[in-house]
Amino acid sequence: MAAISPQSTFEGDVFSAPLVHTDSNLLTCMEPDYKPFIPANSLRRMTRVLKIGLTTALQSIRDSGVEAIGPIVTGTGKGSLQDTEKFIREIEQYKETALNPTPFIQSTYNSVNGLIALQVKGTAYNNTFVHRGFSFENALLDSMMLLAEGAPNTLTGAFEEMTAEHFYIKSRIGFWKPAATDSRQLYEQLSPGSIAGEGATFFVLTGKPGPDTKAALTGFKMLYKPTAEKVAAGLSVFKDGVDLILTGRNGDSRYEHFYQQADALFPGIPQLPFKHLSGEHDTAGAFGMWLAAQLLHRQQVPAQWFPMLKDIPAAANRILLYNHFYGEQHTMMVLERV
């Protein structure tokens, strides 16, 4: 697995990296050197989300030790915003004539998948899910079904970018906090809105654990626009043996009551939030899954990433990840140590 995120998560001993924080309400990705991953002649044409998506996918394959990658299944809420914005701007600027083909091609959601397949010469099933806060989760569900049907492995991931224009549009409809917020104090500043983020996360999934397996996904549930009672009932299904809860809490007072269901149902079970690390975006749940798998694999919690906690939880064996996207798409996952 691999992640490019606002934190230093891509290479090296990621859990020893310092916490990256912001007071601009936007957490931007820490980009690695792409040259070891992407040929220069291809790199020149790519915008940011294509570079982070492709590089994370390739790093994830390297990390997995898998030689031949099977189906490639991804999720993205917005795809390449930079290309989409450029293409739309040029339609207006050049009166629908003389339009550059590159931003048009790359603005399609499945561009990253196509680039991955070209680079690894993958000719198996290839699909991108675009379902707002369920984009990654639908890719994950599809991957699980492919594995159940006998696929040897799947490359499953998500990618998202934020642009200045999109940040502005989303701020107009209340996605972000109106006042500048220190990301380290995100959970204390309960008010409408959250802080924005972006990132790419990829996993190589297999049906059975192998020598390089980091964690096992043993429970999965998606709920669309549920009531608080339905959330409680959903969380209850995964109650047994959970020793750590990862929540997608994001400081948004409008939807905090959903997370309070987890507080009430799991008294005494330690919790870790992750949105101050990733920021909020359509596929932030993929970062949550990466963090859960890292915590299980490394059997430690990077204390410096959680300055808002008095007590840092001990290593966990069974993690419940609960995340939702602005109260609409809710996901519950159980990850276990292997």
């Binding site: 044409r45 050049y94 004539t97 003389a98 339009l99 550059n100 083909p101 590159t102 091609i105």
Partner: peptide, 12 residues
């Protein structure tokens, strides 16, 4: 793809 970009360059 570059050839298409060059066509656009000539036009613009």
């Amino acid at each position: 793809i570059d050839s298409l970009e060059l066509m656009v360059l000539l036009e613009r």
